[in-house]
């Protein structure tokens, strides 16, 4: 499968209200969300969003409720029309597509998974899964063959003839995932897809998604309000507040260098041992003679476990070929795990 195309969001504004066009100018001139709301009765949904979502990677958009994250994801397949700005997929601007082009784009290039599953209650698991293909006009037999593969892949084999109501939340969302994957689209949009699930099932689904992504390499946009989830899934993370991006980068970037007070307050609660990799902490200037080795890219928690198991207090960090690239000490490991970074 060819590498998936990325998505470029440029200067995107969304203002809810009858006269968004005029209001955009005011917001560009520096008017705040509160002012806009109180003086003009318009709601600032998205404020100058610029995100470059890499192809074939998972881009997480994180924010609390009301931050505009669900509004943002709906601009990518234009379930919501922007007030100003561009959403580029390759060299096409989604915002400029005609109704017909947009329908084709939605049918073939995107698939979406919803927080509340949004399955068709009157259709069985199989009939729900073929929905996207049915809309595309794929024949029933071929559609069911393709769907059956994905139903099995998400672990729902044997449930093809069940109705959504007969399944648990986790299973329903597996149907949602199978329905989206069956579409075989480049872009997978996941709007708080796992937020409604129990913690254990949520972890489980995250693993399912990561496994799938390893073979599929789709461009996934994943919305969440949970930083742990964001750090676990995201190749890149953008944090949204009041409709604006306040920081974006890799999980490491955000945990180690939070951009402001707001983000550091989130980051404080994170299990740093599972986010920071040894490369960030090690001393690159020295090498050990023999002794314990730890591969690069390993999380601190895992490194700590190696120390505990071996009883050593120092280890060589080695790259894929086994060449040492630096030294890691127990002291540094523990310090990095328990000291939260401030901005």
């Amino acid at each position: 499968m060819a590498e998936a195309t990325g998505i470029e969001i440029r200067n995107l504004y969304k203002i809810f209200g009858p006269d968004g066009e005029t209001m955009v100018e005011k917001v560009k001139a520096g008017m705040s969300k509160t002012e806009l709301n109180e003086d003009f009765n318009h709601v600032l949904g998205l404020n100058d969003i610029n995100i470059s979502m890499p192809g074939g990677k998972i881009q997480v958009v994180m924010g609390l409720s009301g931050s505009g994250k669900s509004t943002l994801i709906r601009h990518i397949n234009r379930l919501i029309d922007p007030t100003a700005g561009e959403v580029l997929y390759g060299d096409e601007d989604v915002c400029k597509m005609s109704a017909r082009e947009l329908r084709e784009f939605r049918r073939h290039k995107t698939a979406m998974v919803f927080q509340k599953f949004a399955l068709l209650p009157h259709r069985t698991v199989m009939k729900n899964t073929v929905y996207g293909l049915e809309i595309q006009g794929v024949g029933a037999k071929e559609a069911e063959e393709r769907a059956a593969r994905w139903i099995a892949r998400v672990g729902l084999e044997g449930f093809e003839d069940y109705y959504p109501n007969q399944l648990s939340g986790g299973m329903q969302q597996r149907v949602g995932l199978a329905r989206a994957l069956t579409n075989d689209a480049d872009i997978l949009l996941m709007d708080e897809a796992f937020s409604a699930l129990d913690p254990l099932i949520r972890m489980d689904m995250q693993s399912v998604l990561l496994d799938l992504q390893e073979e599929l390499h789709k461009t996934i946009v994943f919305i969440t309000h949970d930083l742990d989830e964001a750090l676990r899934l995201g190749d890149r993370i953008a944090i949204l507040r009041d409709g604006a991006v306040i920081q974006q980068g890799t999980g490491q970037d955000i945990v180690l260098n939070p951009a402001d007070e707001y983000i550091s307050s989130f980051v404080k609660e994170v299990n740093r041992g599972r986010v920071i990799i040894v490369d960030t902490v090690m001393d690159r200037d020295n090498k050990l003679e023999g002794g314990l080795t730890i591969p690069t890219g390993v999380m601190l928690e895992e490194a700590a476990k190696s120390f505990a198991d071996s009883g050593e207090s120092k280890a060589n960090v080695v790259d894929a070929s086994g060449t040492p690239v630096g030294i890691l000490t127990v002291q540094d490991t523990i310090t990095a795990m328990v000291t939260p970074a401030s901005h």
Partner: peptide, 10 residues
Amino acid sequence: DVLEAADAFG
């Protein structure tokens, strides 16, 4: 929600 899903699939 279901209508939105139908829209999202084109």
